[in-house]
Amino acid sequence: MGQVTVRVGGYSHPVSCEDGQEAHLVALAGEVDKRVSSIKAMGGGQFNEARLLLLGALLLADEVHDLKVALAQARAGQPVPPPAADPRVADRLARIADRIEGIAQTLDRT
């Protein structure tokens, strides 16, 4: 069993994986860390580790959803819009972060 320590949002996490999958796991953690870093850059630096990881996971889930929709459209022969590569991406991420924070606040009340 392989073992690596990954850093996400400034926190270290030891994680086990199948032998030979260590580099892949580190790359996946890097993707999570990118999302957590973007949340911090948008003013989310006051969140605790659990909140940062939750918000990062929700951003990734949103991206996966968009990719599934695009894949379904491509399989159905529908045109797939090009990926967002303009300044509006930051605005979209900010709106998503606001929605996620609203969800997180609702969870805190329960």
Rank of each mutant, 00 (worst) to 15 (best):
V15I: 14
S16H: 13
S16M: 10
C17P: 01
C17W: 09
E18Y: 00
Q21A: 14
Q21D: 12
Q21H: 15
A23V: 05
H24K: 11
L25D: 06
V26Y: 01
V26E: 09
V26W: 04
A27Q: 12
A27R: 14
A27E: 15
A27K: 12
L28I: 10
L28H: 03
A29K: 01
G30L: 04
E31G: 10
E31K: 12
V32R: 01
D33P: 02
D33W: 15
K34N: 07
R35W: 05
R35K: 11
V36C: 08
V36G: 03
V36I: 10
V36E: 07
S37F: 02
S37E: 13
S38H: 02
S38R: 06
I39H: 04
I39D: 04
I39R: 02
I39C: 04
K40L: 04
K40W: 04
K40G: 02
A41R: 14
M42K: 10
M42G: 00
G43W: 06
G43T: 05
G43D: 07
G44P: 02
G44E: 11
Q46D: 10
Q46N: 09
Q46F: 13
Q46G: 02
F47V: 04
F47M: 11
N48D: 14
N48Q: 06
N48H: 09
N48P: 01
N48E: 08
E49C: 10
E49T: 15
A50P: 01
A50G: 05
A50E: 12
L52R: 05
L53R: 05
L54Q: 01
L55R: 03
L55I: 13
L55V: 07
A57K: 01
L58Y: 12
L59P: 00
L59T: 03
L59N: 08
L59K: 03
L60C: 09
L60I: 13
L60F: 06
A61K: 15
D62C: 05
V64W: 12
D66S: 11
L67C: 07
L67W: 10
L67P: 01
L67D: 06
L67R: 15
K68T: 04
V69K: 08
V69H: 07
A70F: 10
L71R: 15
A72G: 08
A72V: 06
Q73M: 15
A74N: 06
A74C: 02
A76S: 12
A76P: 02
G77R: 06
G77Y: 10
Q78G: 05
Q78F: 11
V80Q: 06
V80I: 14
P82M: 11
P82A: 11
P83R: 15
A84R: 15
A84T: 07
A84G: 01
A85I: 05
P87R: 14
V89P: 01
A90E: 13
D91M: 02
D91A: 06
D91F: 05
R92H: 12
R92I: 11
R92C: 12
L93F: 13
L93M: 09
L93Q: 13
A94R: 14
R95N: 05
R95M: 12
R95Y: 07
A97S: 09
D98I: 04
D98A: 13
R99K: 11
I100C: 03
G102Y: 07
G102L: 06
G102N: 09
I103L: 04
A104N: 04
A104T: 03
